[in-house]
Write a protein that binds this DNA or RNA. Structure first.
Length: 408
DNA sequence: ACTGACACTAC
RNA sequence: AUUGUAGUGUCAGU
């Protein structure tokens, strides 16, 4: 197995991945650009180090980033070289474990997306499994138990060198303002290997759920079991908490876990309606609006630049809107964006008559009366000020991805 | 078929 | 200088 990891082809792929990600440097300040020149000199040496089981990982660099919902996320950034080695292991480990993972585990796995999880959840709901046991693990990556993880790995890996190498990565420690602290638990958030390791640890949970014949899906540490009654849910919850906190030595986040009706718990950015359709979760909708607001704020940039930015952002959301099954919500966002744009245009017109002339050339006019505008020719009317009635042709809005979506 | 850039989402 | 995996989208190139 170590032969496969240290194989030149595997290492080359690992290097390319690290390079493509353009990540920051680790504790040794070696950037991904330096990595190539380093490898030209020391590539052979690295390979030998690995295949003899002599590779010594460097401690990870501690970085704190704010989480979107408040709080901080502790990152552990390995050196570029270590990232490459971890990536090499990841490639082999992922291929090895992929067939063994549960069909209902979706996080961090190739060819599996958040949308598939949602669809599966909807299937359960359609069969009448309306109650959901929502289990969230607190600080999941940081609390992975090393011994349990190594035991899981040892079940399928015979190569002692590989096991030792992974153990060294787990124990390599954190450099926090000049001091190396050893790590008793957890996988570094930021290590290429960490996601697949997390799946290997939680595979035990999947197996238990499967053996009990329960309907469930899992996306990383977000695990949901679908049942038919509150009572059944509470029973499942109690036994799962016992399993996770006892045998698996992990911690359940009790404030974020609950037994509730499925449509009361937003899931991966979506919520469900009572009859099981998908809508945008309020939190996601809010974030979306905030960003649009920011992109259409009055100020320096030109209209074209704004449109570019808007379009790019909307394209990122395209898939989300495509999946949403409540049309009113969709129209709501569509109207809302149009309104923002119109007020922006009005503002630009007011500031610069020259600019306004250009806009008119693009088919924007203000002279039309409201009735003909609204009905006749697919124009849109705005009465931003009593004195001004500005109209935008629909074709102009077509530049925006969201609007194109509406038409399709 | 493959590669690259830039976004966005989930955790 | 803010990391990682996975997914999706737009564009560009051989």
């Amino acid at each position: 197995m170590m032969a496969r990891i240290a194989h030149p082809n595997n290492l080359k792929k690992a290097f390319q991945r690290v390079k493509r990600n353009k990540g920051a440097a680790g504790i040794d300040r070696m950037t991904v650009e330096d990595l190539f020149t380093y490898l030209q000199g020391h590539g052979r040496q690295l390979r030998q180090c690995l295949s003899r089981g002599l590779w010594k990982p460097t401690p990870v660099r501690r970085v704190l980033i704010p989480k979107p919902c408040g709080g901080e996320r502790k990152l552990g950034i390995p050196t570029a070289l270590d990232r490459m080695v971890q990536q090499a292991i990841q490639q082999v480990l992922q291929a090895e474990w992929e067939p063994r993972f549960s069909a209902y585990s979706y996080g961090f796995r190739p060819y599996r997306s958040a949308h598939q999880v949602i669809s599966q959840a909807q299937l359960y709901m359609k069969d009448g499994y309306n109650w959901v046991v929502d289990i969230d693990l607190s600080k999941f990556f940081d609390r992975v138990n090393h011994d349990r993880l190594m035991a899981k790995l040892a079940e399928h890996i015979e190569d002692k060198d590989v096991l030792r190498l992974i153990r060294r990565f787990l124990k390599s420690g954190v450099m926090d303002n000049g001091l190396v602290k050893p790590q008793a638990e957890g996988v570094p958030q930021g290590g290429p290997l960490s996601p697949v390791l997390s799946n290997i640890v939680l595979d035990e949970l999947d197996r238990t759920l499967e053996n009990r014949g329960l309907r469930f899906v899992r996306y990383a540490d977000d695990c949901r079991v679908f049942v038919k009654s509150k009572k059944a849910g509470e029973r499942v919850m109690a036994s799962l908490v016992k399993l996770i906190e006892g045998k698996m030595k992990l911690k359940v986040n009790h404030t974020k876990s609950a037994v509730d009706r499925a449509w009361k718990r937003p899931f991966l950015g979506y919520s469900f309606t009572r009859d099981g359709r998908k809508t945008l979760a309020t939190k996601s909708g809010k974030r979306f609006k905030d960003k649009i607001r920011q992109l259409t704020r009055k100020g320096g940039r030109s209209l074209e630049q704004r449109l570019e930015g808007l379009n790019r952002y909307l394209q990122g959301w395209k898939n989300y809107f495509r999946e949403v099954e409540t049309s009113t919500e969709f129209e709501h966002f569509d109207c809302w964006i149009r309104r923002r744009l119109r007020s922006l245009l009005w503002y630009q017109w007011k500031r610069s008559p020259k600019r306004y002339k250009e806009l008119r050339k693009q088919g924007i006019s203000d002279k039309l009366t409201r009735q003909t505008v609204a009905s006749g020719k697919g124009h849109w009317r705005v009465s931003r000020s009593p004195a001004l009635h500005m109209a935008l042709p629909n074709s102009w809005f077509d530049k925006l991805g969201l609007i194109r979506l509406l038409a399709a």
